[in-house]
Design a binder for these strands. Structure first.
Length: 426
RNA sequence: CGGGGAAUCGUAUAGCGGUAGUAUGCAUGCUUUGGGAGCAUGCGGUCUGGGUUCGACUCCCAGUUCCCCGACCA
C-alpha cells in the first residue's frame, strides 16, 4: 500500500483523555479512533492488525476442530428468559433496546443461550457429538466503567468457541486440547512468555475456570505465580503455577496442593475458558440419545479471547518510547519502504520499481511515497512500528544497496536487493 | 454505582470579572532536505442551560461528556 493513499495522520502528542499507553499510542499512530468512552473504531492500520490476530486465532480454532459460524448480535429475550439471564438482577450489563412494533431485544454480551438453542435443531444423537463451533462477534457490555484504553470496552470483538460433548470425560479431552491451542495463540502473537495459565473462579458453572493472564502493569487482575514445581493440575506446569487472587484462599490452596513461595503479579486476562456442564443444555432442552436410547443433556464448555484486548496487550508489552513495535506475526505490514525525497526523481523512480517488485513477490509493504522530509518519515515509521524499515536514498543508490533497519532492535544493515528479498516473508 | 478531578482553535496547553494567548497542525509563498526544518502571511476556539454582575471564558448552580480510584465484571 502506498502511504499517500492512507488517509490516517499521525500525531506528535498523546490525546489528553487517554492515560492508557495502548490507546494513546494506537491513536497517535492512527490505528484506532475513540468514539466515546469504551468504544473504539478501527482504522485501516488497526484493522490490519486485528485481521492478523483473528487469522491466528481462526487457524488454531480450526486446528482444534472448531467450525466457524456467525450468530446474531441482536438477541431474542425468550431464550435468555429460559436460562434466567434476561433480568437485570441476574445480568446487570445488558444493553437492551425496544423493538418498534413491540417487545425488546438485547445486544449480545455472550452467546451461550442462542447457540445452545440453535444446537437443539442439530444435535439429536450421540453420533452427532462432540462438536465445537466458534465465531468472531461483536459483544456489548454496559460496563459501569470503561478503562485501560482498548483493554476494557463496552463494545468489543470476541472469539467465542463453544464445545458440546457427551459427558464430562469427553469434555475434558477437548478442554485440554483447547488449552494447548490457546497457548499456541499467545505464543504466536508474541506474548507467550509473559502469559500464565491461571486457576480462576468457575462462577456458577463449575469449581474452577482457567484464565490466560499476561503480566502487565496495565492489567486489572492480580495473580499469584510460583516459578517452582509446587502443585499439580492443569495450571500446574512446571514453573507456571498461577492462581487468580479472587480465589486465593486457604481452602483452594489445600485443594490444589499448593506449596512454596508465590509471587504476586498484575496481569491482563487475555483468555478465559469455562466448563459449563449442563447448565445451558438443561435450561434450553439440548439433549441427545445414547446407544441405548436414553436421553442425556449435552455437556458444554466455552472458550473466549478478545482479539482487540489481545492487540492492546501486545502494545502494552512490546512498545517503546518511540512508538509501537509489532511482532512479525501481527504487524499491519511486514516492510516499511521509505524513499527519501531529498534524492530527487531517480530515487523516487528506483523506489517505485522496488515497491512493484516487493508487491509482485507478495510481500506486505507500506510504501512511504509522501513528499516529506526524512526526519518526519523516520519518526512516523518508528511510531507505526512495522518490523522492518527499508530506506532508499541517493546514498543507498550510490552503494547499490538498501538500508535495512529492524524496528525492535534498531539494528541497521546494508543489503543488496537480492539479499534483502531472500529475507522478506511473502 | 460511591468518591475525586477535568472541560479553552483539529491536537496539546496558558490565562483573566473588562478586546483569549502560545505551540503544533492546516493553507499560501520563498528558502531548505538522512531523525518531526526556517521565515513570512492566513484560517481556526472558551461543552450546554440557568444564575450573580454594568459586564462572565473566568464566579455560582444544574446538566452533559471525559479521565482517575474503588465496587462490579456471570
Amino acid at each position: 500500500m502506498r502511504q499517500s493513499q492512507l488517509f490516517t495522520k499521525t500525531r506528535k502528542e498523546a490525546p489528553s483523555d487517554e492515560t492508557a499507553k495502548n490507546a494513546a499510542l494506537l491513536i497517535r499512530a492512527g490505528f484506532i479512533h475513540k468514539e466515546m468512552a469504551g468504544v473504539y473504531s478501527f482504522l485501516p492500520l488497526g484493522l490490519r492488525v486485528m485481521q492478523k490476530v483473528i487469522g491466528i486465532i481462526r487457524d488454531e480454532m480450526n486446528t482444534l476442530g472448531g467450525v466457524e459460524l456467525h450468530l446474531a448480535a441482536l438477541q431474542d429475550p425468550r431464550v435468555w428468559e429460559a436460562s434466567g439471564r434476561w433480568s437485570d438482577d441476574a445480568v446487570d450489563n445488558w444493553f437492551k433496546t425496544k423493538v418498534r412494533v413491540g417487545g425488546e431485544a438485547g445486544l449480545a454480551f455472550t452467546h451461550e443461550e442462542p447457540l445452545t438453542r440453535i444446537m437443539t435443531a442439530h444435535i439429536r444423537s450421540y453420533k452427532d457429538l462432540p462438536v465445537a463451533a466458534y465465531q468472531f462477534q461483536t459483544k456489548f457490555r454496559n460496563e459501569t466503567r470503561a478503562k485501560n484504553g482498548i483493554l476494557r470496552t463496552r463494545e468489543f470483538l470476541m472469539k467465542d468457541l463453544y464445545s458440546f460433548s457427551r459427558d464430562e470425560a469427553e469434555h475434558v479431552v477437548f478442554y485440554e486440547r483447547a488449552i494447548a491451542a490457546y497457548k499456541r495463540i499467545f505464543n504466536r502473537v508474541g506474548i507467550g512468555g509473559h502469559t500464565y495459565l491461571t486457576y480462576a473462579s468457575g462462577g456458577s458453572f463449575c469449581k474452577f475456570s482457567h484464565e490466560f493472564q499476561t503480566v502487565s502493569e496495565a492489567g486489572e487482575d492480580v495473580i499469584y505465580v510460583s516459578e517452582g514445581d509446587c502443585g499439580k493440575g492443569l495450571a500446574m506446569e512446571k514453573g507456571r503455577a498461577a492462581i487468580n487472587k479472587e480465589i486465593w484462599t486457604e481452602d483452594v490452596k489445600k485443594d490444589l496442593g499448593l506449596q512454596g513461595d508465590f509471587e504476586e503479579k498484575k496481569t491482563v486476562e487475555v483468555g478465559n475458558i469455562f466448563t459449563l456442564g449442563t447448565r445451558f443444555s438443561e435450561a434450553l432442552g439440548l439433549s441427545y440419545l445414547d446407544e441405548k436410547g436414553a436421553s442425556h443433556p449435552v455437556f458444554m464448555g466455552s472458550y473466549g479471547i478478545g482479539p482487540g484486548r489481545l492487540m492492546g496487550t501486545v502494545v502494552e508489552l512490546l512498545s517503546d518510547d518511540r512508538g509501537l513495535v509489532w511482532p512479525e506475526s501481527i504487524a499491519p505490514f511486514r516492510v516499511h519502504l521509505i524513499s527519501l525525497a531529498t534524492g530527487g526523481r531517480s530515487v523516487k523512480t528506483a523506489t517505485d520499481e522496488l515497491y512493484e517488485k516487493f508487491s509482485q513477490k507478495g510481500a506486505e509493504v507500506l510504501y512511504d511515497d509522501r513528499d516529506l522530509r526524512p526526519g518526519e518519515k523516520f519518526a512516523d515509521a518508528d511510531l507505526i512500528g512495522i518490523p522492518t524499515r527499508v530506506v532508499v536514498s541517493e546514498k543507498t543508490l550510490a552503494q547499490g544497496k538498501l538500508e535495512v533497519k529492524i524496528r525492535k532492535t534498531g539494528e541497521v544493515n546494508m543489503l543488496s536487493e537480492s539479499e534483502f528479498l531472500k529475507t522478506v516473508p511473502s
